[in-house]
Nucleic acid binder design. Structure first.
Lengths: 110, 110
DNA sequence: CGGATAGTCAAGGAGTTACTTAACTATCCG
DNA sequence: CGGATAGTTAAGTAACTCCTTGACTATCCG
């Protein structure tokens, strides 16, 4: 879980995932539009593969990478679990707290 | 988006979110179970609030934090968008690519 | 008032991350 | 074979992250 979110926390890696969501690609194809050296791309891909977000197979001298949807789905599940209990009762509570009468020093947040 | 995922990439901040998913809490209440100094907790909360994942209001000398579900939902949306086009056709394509018998070399820059 | 409580600001330092270049291996093609 | 292509490894560096301590402000309560 930690690995997955750390992997997604980088904009370059997210770009790679967005590209892979449109179809498999080689390491070079992934590196080229990102203005980045090949070794840099490799490191990112290793992070993504380590996190279980992509899979890659090497045929000849070309390594083809593809998305692994299970990884993304795991994150979605965690997110859903965190926001389930609250959802819309939060705003009411927020308003309640913000309007506590005995607090002249409390400027409106913002 | 970048801020949100960077915020979620830290285990301590995820613990905070899980705690807040069970109800609002003060800065001290969040820091205590995490064996962490108060300033450290503050920095994490600032990151979370900056990312739009939590909201906080100060009443008296106590700052009460609460979850902001919209932030988590934004991430869920992005994740869903990435894995929609593929889902299960990926495995078939992967097998296909892995079994290509020959290797044409003319793909890259000419 | 004066002490304790809750939070905040400001450096500073240990550890990690993301990139680079250089050197190297493996594959393809003529 | 031999040159070019695709990827990989290794080492080094600049920038960032997380946490700490110390000093400070604001609030509560006796």
């Amino acid at each position: 879980m930690d690995q997955v979110l750390k992997a997604l926390a980088d904009a370059t890696r997210r770009d790679m995932i967005e590209r892979l969501a449109r179809g498999p690609a080689s390491v070079g194809e992934l590196a080229q539009p990102l203005t980045m050296s090949l070794p840099a791309a490799m490191q990112h891909l290793q992070v993504l593969e380590n996190a279980g977000l992509i899979r890659s197979t090497k045929v000849g001298r070309v390594r083809t990478c593809q998305l692994e949807p299970a990884g993304l789905r795991m994150v979605e599940n965690w997110l859903g679990r965190q926001r389930t209990p609250w959802e819309h009762s939060l705003d009411l509570l927020g308003d309640f707290l913000a309007q506590q009468p005995e607090n002249p020093d409390e400027g409106a947040r913002s």
